[in-house]
Structures are given as structure tokens and as C-alpha cells.
Design a binder for these strands. Structure first.
Lengths: 200, 200
DNA sequence: GAAAACTTTGCAGATTCTGCAAAGTCGCAG
DNA sequence: CTGCGACTTTGCAGAATCTGCAAAGTTTTC
């Protein structure tokens, strides 16, 4: 078990070093060599962990979410899909909350280096196929049905927006609340809230 | 006007060359030098048009959609948001239909090189901020309200899924129909269609 | 404690990507 | 049509990214 722990630590060190360096200087102006040096490993080791420099900045999607599929299928059959999805994703939210400092820094870095935002979205999307299969299984639909794909993409979009908003301020309440709100809006068919300018 | 046309043509040549080469051999096994040579320009010129090799493969998001904002605001105030969005996006769908061959090839390439899919999604997301602002304006909401961001992200997700499905087969009907179906599912609150396995 | 399994590292080298200045092309006014 | 200004292409040098491979180091297993 030492091996595993060491690996995780190295990975974490690399991510932390990358985020801190990019936070200090600009997104460019930081080389992989510097990141590796700051983490105390060789450049070659960096590339054993991440395929690109940017990968170290955006992190893993759903790292806290293991058996999504089983979790989703275990939910009562009459529970609305969005609610079941929410429950299944709770572990991921908790993981993010645990890494709160990490995520705040990551989001500040992405805010200051907008070219990273698409890459964050790209990283998040890698979990989508798995999500789609889980939805298909639960809904008893063939895995090539349009619905699961759409449901996964929309869920992904909602979680992403929620995470960004959650990280935007220091005291914006628990992440899960942001996600719940987004899911609620979607369940309501994406109807705009009453505008403030023209009140009732 | 010759200048502009020539530029567009060069860009198109590069995209076409990139797609064709990657389609023939694998996603790796193609260098930027080869793409540039196939398009009849220097490698340096390639990088004048695209920041990375992959950018030439995934293409521009919403290239056919110019004044989204005006279009959206012009819709009747009582028209449901999703319908208004659909109308505003129609030009983009038409543009994609025009480039049908291009998109079919692009999607086949992405299908055969799955590491490109996240990048396609990333490219699509770059139009999201603009979309969010348009939605905010129409809904009379502050531009930092959660709703427009969510609406833009969800719309983006729906269009993406629709484009992928549309391109998945040669005769899957007009793209707009796929988008309409996706929007319909969202408007209904993302409720699964009845499963086939346990029928009514 | 020795072998197996895995991780780190250095090194060579291909490839990607950038800055810069020279050369080429286009648009336009005289 | 000529020349000038704006823009585009190109070559070149060089920095940075990224890969394969084999040697060296570390952890696990037996």
C-alpha cells in the first residue's frame, strides 16, 4: 500500500506545484521542467503522470465517483432520474469539498487563464460515456439511444456550471446545493426565473 | 475581397488536408509538416491559422452564427426560451448542413480517434459565454445570474449530442430535427422515454 | 533476502510551437 | 500603371513539449 500512497502523493505534488506556479506567474511563463523541479521529481516523471502540462492543471473528473453504475441502478425505480443522478454523484461532490482549497485555487487559475476553461470542460466530458451507460442501464434503454447521451451531457453541463459558481466565492454554501439548484432548473424544463427588472 | 477569400480557402485546405490524412493513417502518424505540405503551404503558415494540430481537426464552433444576440432578443417575448434559442441557432445548423461532407468526415475521424472528442467539446464550449450573455439579455437577468450560464451550457450540450447523432449515419434526417428532439426532451424536464424492454 | 513487479530517471530525438525579420501579395490612390 | 501601405507567407533559430528505451532504484511478495 505504500506504493499506491506514494503515487497519489507525487501526483498531488505535481498538481499543486503546477497550480501554484501558474497562479504566481502567467499561464505561459511556466515550463514543465519548473513544475517537475518544484514537485521534486524529474521532467520525465511528470510525463509519466500527465500527458500534457495542462492536464496537471485541470485535474481528474469524478475522481471521487467510483461505482456510479451500481449506485444509479440501486436507486428506487420510481425515483425521478435527476434525483437518482444527484444521489449517485454525491460522493463526487464530497470529494471536491474535501479538496476545497485545491479547487478554489484551480478555479482562480482558470479564471485568470481563460484558455484553460475549454480544457477543464474537455476533462469533465471524459466521464460522460460512463455516465451515459449508467443512465441507459437504469432506464432500460439500448446504449445507443439518444436519451442517455443527452442526459449525460446535460448532467455534465449542470455539474460544471455548479462547480464554477461554487468556487467563484469563498462562502457560497455547499456545492451540493448549487448542483441541486441547477438540477431543479433542468427538471423544470429550463424556464427562466422571473426577471428582477420588470417585477410582479 | 480577394484577400479574405484566399484566407478562407487556405484555412479550408488545411482543415481538409488534416482530416484526410488523419482519416487515412491514425491520429498520430500525421505531423503538422505533412498537413501543411498537403495543403500547399509552409509549416509556419499552418501555425498562423491554428494554435495546435488538433485545432485544425475539430474546427470552429458556431461559425455560421453571427448575431446571436440580436436574433434572440428579436424573438417574441412570450416565446419559450428553448424555442427562441432554436430559432436563433438555425443559421448554425444550416451552415453545418452545407458542410455536410466535411462534418461527416470530421465525425468519423473523431470516432476513430476518441482522444479528440474532448477537444471537440472544448471547441464547442468556447461559444458558450456569448450564448450566456444573449440569454441573460433576453431574460432580463444580470449577466452573472446562474440561469444564463446553465442555459448556455445545457444548450451547448444538446446541440453537441444532436450533431454527433446526426453525423453518425448517412441518412438520419436533417440536423435541425435532432436538435429539436433534444430540446424537446429538455423542455420536458429530462424525463426518460418509455423503455422498450418492459412495454406498456 | 532474493526475485518479481513497479517506479523513477537520464538521454536521445522527433515534434510542436514561437518570435522575428525578409520576401511576397494584395488593395488602393494618385 | 505605378507605387505605397497593409497584410500574408515563409524560413530560420531556438525553446518547449512529448516519446521510447534501458538502466537504476524502490516496494512487494514469497
Amino acid at each position: 500500500m505504500l506504493r499506491e500512497a506514494k503515487r497519489r502523493q507525487t501526483r498531488l505534488d505535481l498538481i499543486t506545484a503546477a497550480l501554484r506556479l501558474v497562479d504566481e506567474r502567467g499561464g505561459d511563463r511556466v515550463t514543465v521542467d519548473e513544475i517537475a523541479a518544484a514537485a521534486g521529481v524529474s521532467q520525465r516523471t511528470f510525463f509519466n503522470y500527465f500527458a500534457t502540462k495542462e492536464d496537471a492543471l485541470v485535474g481528474d473528473p469524478l475522481e471521487g465517483c467510483t461505482d456510479l453504475r451500481a449506485h444509479l441502478s440501486a436507486a428506487p425505480a420510481d425515483r425521478p432520474l435527476l434525483d437518482a443522478l444527484f444521489d449517485a454523484l454525491v460522493p463526487a461532490f464530497q470529494q471536491i469539498q474535501l479538496d476545497r482549497e485545491h479547487w478554489l485555487l484551480r478555479m482562480r487559475v482558470i479564471g485568470n487563464n481563460p484558455q484553460l476553461l475549454p480544457l477543464l470542460i474537455a476533462a469533465a466530458s471524459t466521464a460522460e460515456q460512463e455516465l451515459a451507460e449508467a443512465v441507459a442501464e437504469r432506464a432500460g434503454l439500448p446504449s445507443n439511444d439518444p436519451f442517455p447521451q443527452l442526459a449525460a451531457a446535460v448532467t455534465n453541463a449542470a455539474v460544471r456550471v455548479a462547480v464554477i459558481r461554487w468556487a467563484a466565492s469563498e462562502d457560497s454554501g455547499p456545492l451540493a446545493e448549487h448542483v441541486r439548484e441547477a438540477f431543479g432548473t433542468i427538471a423544470a424544463g429550463l424556464v427562466p426565473p422571473p426577471s428582477v427588472s420588470r417585477n410582479a
